[in-house]
């Protein structure tokens, strides 16, 4: 499904602030893989996701999703194949617009926008059903502005929008980091449900080791723009937080042991 080959991304090339965010990374994901990505600050996790999504162009290498070459396409053209949820709950939705209007924008992802009416009545029925599945009571306030929702509700809505119309891949960029622990668990739980139900190929960046272990069938650990660990299947299922910490130490990723990581144990 995903095939990343020798991707390198350098920020501020040729200046004193030059930083190699991704260093010759290669990674393949099979159809239906759910990969969790962990690593310290500046490890390149979010950069990797943003390079796939087209927020930044890559300096070298190729990125293919389902045999479609993405690395030279602009961000808005890649959106056709990718569902995304961001760390900042404000990023994924248009605050000034209604819940149903946001869903309608997402429903048309990958289609040409025309002068047809922006939201049809029969769509609203579908949205009502989908919103009801979130179990947040949003189905009764579909015309309400998204700006009135809490961070957790907005993330749940963004998640719903990202999974509309079966994207080839779902990219979750620390999408629960800005939420309180209880809401974060709920949104993670919802994400897992969606991923399982739609059999979505997913890459989830997280700061939370527990979540990285609990969810997905494969775990990747990054450090200084490279992949240090890649554990999947049975081996991942048996993995404990202590094992993970030991593996990190062995791999020489001292920076990884930052406060947020330890706190989230």
């Amino acid at each position: 499904m995903l095939d990343i080959r020798n991707v390198t991304k350098i920020f501020n090339a040729g200046t004193v602030n030059e930083r190699k965010a991704l260093d010759n990374i290669s990674l393949s994901m099979s159809d239906g893989d759910f990969v969790t990505v962990i690593g310290g600050n500046g490890a390149g996790k979010s950069t990797l996701l943003n390079c796939i999504a087209g927020v930044y162009p890559v300096d070298e290498g190729t990125i293919m999703v389902d045999n479609i070459k993405l690395d030279r396409l602009p961000e808005y053209k890649r959106a056709k194949y990718l569902g995304r949820v961001f760390q900042d709950p404000m990023m994924g939705t248009a605050a000034d617009m209604g819940i149903q209007e946001n869903l309608a924008l997402a429903w048309r992802r990958g289609n040409r926008r025309t002068l047809r009416w922006g939201i049809m009545d029969k769509e609203k029925e579908l949205y009502r059903k989908l919103l009801a599945s979130l179990d947040l009571g949003l189905e009764d306030r579909m015309a309400a502005k998204v700006g009135l929702l809490s961070g957790g509700q907005r993330q749940a809505l963004t998640l719903l929008m990202a999974t509309l119309n079966a994207p080839k891949m779902l990219l979750l960029d620390e999408h629960t980091a800005a939420l309180d622990p209880k809401t974060a668990r709920k949104v993670l739980e919802l994400s897992d449900q969606f991923i399982k139900k739609e059999k979505l190929t997913t890459m989830m960046v997280t700061h939370n080791m527990r979540a990285a272990l609990q969810y997905g069938n494969r775990l990747i650990m990054m450090n200084e723009g490279t992949i240090l660990l890649d554990i999947s299947g049975e081996e991942k299922a048996k993995l404990r937080i202590d094992d993970l910490l030991r593996l990190f130490e062995k791999a020489g990723a001292d920076e990884f042991m930052n406060d947020r990581m330890l706190l989230s144990k």
């Binding site: 961001f86 990023m91 248009a94 605050a95 617009m97 924008l105 048309r108 289609n111």
Partner: peptide
Amino acid sequence: SAIRATGTNPHMVRAQG
């Protein structure tokens, strides 16, 4: 709608293609 959304949140609009 796409124009309206652009004024509110261009990131989101690009992510919606």
